[in-house]
Design a protein around this nucleic acid. Sequence first.
RNA 1: GUGGAUGUAGCUUAGUUGGUUAAAGCGCCGGUUUGUGGCACCGGAGACCGUGGGUUCGAGUCCCAUCUUCCACCCCA
Length: 437
Amino acid sequence: MSEINRAVKGTNDILPDKSYKYRFVENKMLETAELFGFKEIRVPVFEHTEVFSRNVGEDTDVVQKEMYTFEDKGGRSITLRPELTAGVVRSVIERGVINGALPAKVCYIGGCYRYEKPQAGRLREFHQFGVECFGAANPAADAEIIALARQILVTLGVKGISLKINSIGCEHCRKNYVAALKSYFEEYKDTLCGTCNGRLNRNPLRILDCKSPICSEIAAKAPLITDYLCDDCKAHFAAVKESLTAQGVMFDVDPHIVRGLDYYNRTVFEFVSGDIGAQSTVCGGGRYDGLVAKMGGNDTPALGFAIGIERLMMLLENTEAPFPEDKKCVLYVAAMGDKAQIKAGGVCAALRDDGIAAQCDLCGRGLKAQLKYADKIGAAYTTVLGDNELADGKVTVKDMKTGETYVCNINDISDKITDLSLKSALHSLEESVLTNG
RNA sequence: GUGGAUGUAGCUUAGUUGGUUAAAGCGCCGGUUUGUGGCACCGGAGACCGUGGGUUCGAGUCCCAUCUUCCACCCCA
């Protein structure tokens, strides 16, 4: 296979044998978000580079080395979005969404692009479902979006995930904390790993979730952010935890979780799984009260989260979560002879007008091959059109599962199929009630 | 960016110490007398053995490089 005919490194094709699962999951997420009042927003895949570089954070890995940035023909610096929050915030400011009723709640699904080395749960093009809530400073909002994330995961049948939450404070209390951290880590300057040594001045917070055994041992005894929170932040975090408990959401406080993007403050959280390899965060999010103002909007508190769709799918598949079956062909109309083939097209058209999935031969194949095909695509019913049927206007419909046959007029075939489908659905419902109690 | 593993038909694999037209199963297409799929039997298409170099009379088999995929670090969803 030549280079040019291969998918670009770190990209994935979702083929028909799986795409229906993605659609199911995406629809479920949107529907669940809607229960909480989140409406879908669609924003461009690319933005001016500054939208990300300034707001995600100049110092972050995402901005420093992972963005797909290029100059367009008008000389603009453009970047393929590495995440959706910054673009959504740009949009709600620019289009005045946050000048309407607050809180404004939006959700989205879309592709993101990061130039990273691919591995399990990490692609260069990946997809996120996320929500953003603008204008709510109250801890009730934090609890609500966490509850929403949890409900989405639970609704989809996710197993074995845990919720970790933390508060990284506001600007003011974080300043004190970072100073304390810095002086603590200074003592271990020579034992810290290379990257952490560099982080010491840049962003000592990041040392806390370094996975090197040496650093994590040192980090284990580092001062805790929770001890440095100002009274307001402390009260806010306490209220979030209280609300979560009241809503029956189980969580662990993990003082070492730190989001990697600069805009977060106060509440941060992630849902983590042990079933999808090293990239274990399925959902991550938090509050970002300063971002809207920073991007030129009115000072508006905000918060949100994002779910990695590919990671979620991995998790669902690895834990054998149930999916509904893909939609199959309902009636396959086999034809014998040229006249019948033309008639078969007409029969299918009429059925489709009634919303029934119908197919017929497009290859000019023999009867046997047509039925073989009908079997392969999982057609529920088949019927054969030949000279006899054309002459007397009656057809035999065969149930491919049971082998039973039914005779009806060609013109009544749509009604017959609807009738049979209903009966069969009722039957399987009865059976499942019987077997499951 | 760093490290480890991998690469033979659509899929899963075989391929002996380098030797003539690279096998098999599954899948795909067709047939077993144009009136009924699943089973069985028969036949067919389909691989420049990831790519590019090199060693050799001769390489899928050896060497080098490169790319992909997978896994981990890093980072994040």
